[in-house]
Amino acid sequence: MYAFEYQRPATLADAVAALTRSEDARPLSGGMTLLPTLKQRLAQPSELVDLSGVPDLQGVREEDGALLIGAFTRHADVAAGETVRRRIPALARLAESIGDRQVRNRGTLGGSIANADPAADYPAAVVALNATVRTDRREIAGDDFFTGLFETALEPGELVVGVRFPVPDAAAYAKFRHPASRYALVGVFVARFGAEVRLAVTGAGPSVFRVPEMETALASDFRPEAIAGITVDADGLNGDIHAAPDYRAHLVTVMARRAVAACG
């Protein structure tokens, strides 16, 4: 790790001010990606702004029939939280499937989505649940938040404060784990809101994406069989030594079917 300065502000305003003051300052949330990156000397921030002391980023609450989850809520707390388990059990189960126990005890929702790792789990939920990302300065629709490989709509210095998840009628997440890293090689989150179905895929491409053809088919027939014949184009999907693009494309259909089946 290169040397850096460190501070732990007590308010959102102080955190934003610290991040705005220096171009090279980075927010530190759970640190599950940032710290390994620093250990490998792949980044050299001048300052880390630890968000753990900011009360505005914490907690889960219901708001107008939706769930508002603070950015600093750890995966373990989303997984075990009574409100989340009752209102959107699929989201709790997704959180329970992230990384391992120790990662879930540190990693946070805000950190995960701001990092926008192509293999992260939360992006699939944010997009499929049509969530809204709240920042210190605005609201961003889930569909507009993830803009590319490790890229989001966040401006420099802009902080995720929380995510507002509408409550679906049914939802499920099916993940195929990378054999080594155990990140999502392909993860599919499907959510049904009345007649509308949204389906988002993580892991397979450079960034989370929806599959409109599957959504349309499921809107009229919400059964796994309805999408069994629908495949995504392998062009542009990720490929590595564990999974070439065509295999990932195949897994999208399989995982999508399993997610629908898991909706019961």
Partner: peptide
């Protein structure tokens, strides 16, 4: 699970537990 892979230029592609599958 386990497989050590170098690419054609001799770079180790399985240089961490992110890519080298260790039994858990």
């Amino acid at each position: 699970l386990e497989n050590c892979v170098y690419d054609e230029s001799g770079q180790l592609l399985t240089g961490s537990y992110m890519d080298y599958g260790m039994p858990r």
